[in-house]
C-alpha cells in the first residue's frame, strides 16, 4: 500500500459526496424551474439548518465511536421548556434570557448525564441515549399535558424569521456553528482528542488524555446544539410542541454518515456533514417542488442515502 496522505483521502471522500451533491443540484435545476432561485435556495438552507446544527454535535459524538439517539427528544423538551418559561409573565429582556437559558441549560444537562452514564457507569451510548430519548419525550408530554404551548410573547417567532441582510438568521447560525466546529475539530487540542479517542481510546488514555472528559464534553456539545435547534424550531412554529423533532435522530445520523463519517469512530469531518445535510435537504425540497407524494419521498430519500454512501466508498477505492 502506498503511503497515502490523510488529508488527501479526506478530501477525496468529501469530493465523492460533493459530486453527488452537484449532480443533485443540476438535476433539480433542470427538472423544476422554481428550484434554482435565490429565494428557494435560501429556503432550503433555512429548512435544513435545524437538523444540520444537530448533525454537527452528532458528528463529534460519532467521531468518538458513540451515538446520540436523544437529540430529537431534546429538541422537543428544550422547545417546551423555553416556551413555558417565556409565558411566565417576566419583563421582556429577562423573559428571553430565562427562556433561552432554560432551553440551552437543559441541553447541557442532558448531555452531561449521557456522558456520565457512558463513561462512569460504562453503559453503551446506544442504550444510554435511547433511554434519555424516551425519558425526555415523555417529560415533554407530561409538562404540556400533550398540548402545544401557544400564546408566546410577540417577538419570539422573529428569531427564526429574522434576516441578517439577505441571510435568514437560522442559516447564519448554522454557518457559524459549522465554521466553529470545523475549526475546533481540525485545529484545536479538543478536536485532536476527539479523533484520538475515537481512533484508539486505549492509546489515547495511555498518552495521558483524560478520555472520560473528552467523551462527556462531546455529549454536552451534542445536547447543547440539539437544544439550540429546539429553540429555533419552536420559534419557527411559534409554539412549544411536545412531539417536535420526532425521528430527527435518524435524519441526523443519515446526514453524518452520508457525509463520510465512520460509525466506528476516528474518521470524518464536519464539512462532509454539511454537504450530507444539504444533500438530504435539497432532495426533500426538490421532490416537494416536483409535487412528489410524501410517501414516495421517503422511499426516494432512503435510496439516495444508500447511493450516496456507495459512491463515497467507490471513490475511496
Amino acid at each position: 500500500m502506498p503511503a497515502e496522505r490523510p488529508t488527501l483521502s479526506r478530501v477525496l471522500s468529501e469530493y465523492g459526496i460533493g459530486a453527488a451533491f452537484v449532480l443533485e443540484l443540476t438535476l433539480f435545476s433542470v427538472l423544476s424551474p422554481h428550484f434554482a432561485t435565490v429565494d428557494n435556495l435560501l429556503n432550503v438552507t433555512l429548512q435544513t439548518s435545524i437538523t444540520a446544527i444537530i448533525a454537527v454535535g452528532m458528528t463529534f459524538v460519532i467521531l468518538t465511536a458513540g451515538i446520540d439517539l436523544s437529540v430529537g427528544s431534546i429538541v422537543a423538551l428544550s422547545g417546551v421548556l423555553t416556551t413555558v418559561v417565556l409565558r411566565a409573565d417576566l419583563p421582556v429582556p429577562l423573559a428571553y434570557a430565562a427562556g433561552l437559558g432554560a432551553g440551552l441549560l437543559f441541553g447541557v444537562l442532558s448531555g452531561t448525564a449521557a456522558g456520565i452514564f457512558v463513561t462512569k457507569f460504562r453503559i453503551t451510548p446506544f442504550i444510554v441515549t435511547l433511554a434519555l430519548m424516551t425519558i425526555w419525550r415523555g417529560t415533554a408530554f407530561v409538562i404540556t399535558e400533550g398540548r402545544p404551548v401557544w400564546e408566546l410573547p410577540e417577538g419570539f417567532s422573529e428569531i427564526a424569521r429574522a434576516r441578517v441582510s439577505f441571510l435568514p438568521l437560522p442559516t447564519l447560525i448554522m454557518i457559524v456553528v459549522f465554521a466553529l466546529a470545523h475549526f475546533v475539530l481540525t485545529r484545536t487540542k479538543f478536536g485532536r482528542y476527539v479523533y484520538a479517542v475515537g481512533g484508539n481510546s486505549e492509546a489515547a488514555r495511555l498518552a495521558g488524555i483524560r478520555t472520560d472528559r473528552v467523551l462527556i464534553q462531546v455529549y454536552v456539545l451534542s445536547g447543547l446544539l440539539s437544544a439550540l435547534s429546539g429553540i429555533l424550531l419552536a420559534s419557527r412554529v411559534n409554539s412549544g410542541q411536545p412531539n417536535a423533532g420526532l425521528m430527527y435522530e435518524l435524519d441526523v445520523i443519515a446526514a453524518v454518515v452520508v457525509g463520510g463519517t465512520s460509525l466506528f469512530g476516528g474518521r470524518g469531518t464536519v464539512i462532509g456533514t454539511l454537504i450530507g445535510s444539504l444533500l438530504i435537504g435539497v432532495l426533500r425540497n426538490g421532490l416537494n417542488l416536483m409535487n412528489v407524494e410524501s410517501y414516495v419521498q421517503q422511499v426516494v430519500v432512503g435510496v439516495v442515502i444508500l447511493l450516496a454512501v456507495m459512491m463515497d466508498r467507490l471513490r475511496k477505492r
Binding site: 475549526f183 484545536t188 484520538a196 481512533g199 484508539n200 495521558g208 476516528g266
Partner: peptide
Amino acid sequence: RLVDELNVAENIVLGQEPAGYGFL
C-alpha cells in the same frame, strides 16, 4: 499504542499539546 487515524506527528505529540483546554 498508536492511533491509526492520526498522522505520525500527531501521534508523537499526542497528550502533550500545550496546556490550557481552550476549545478555541
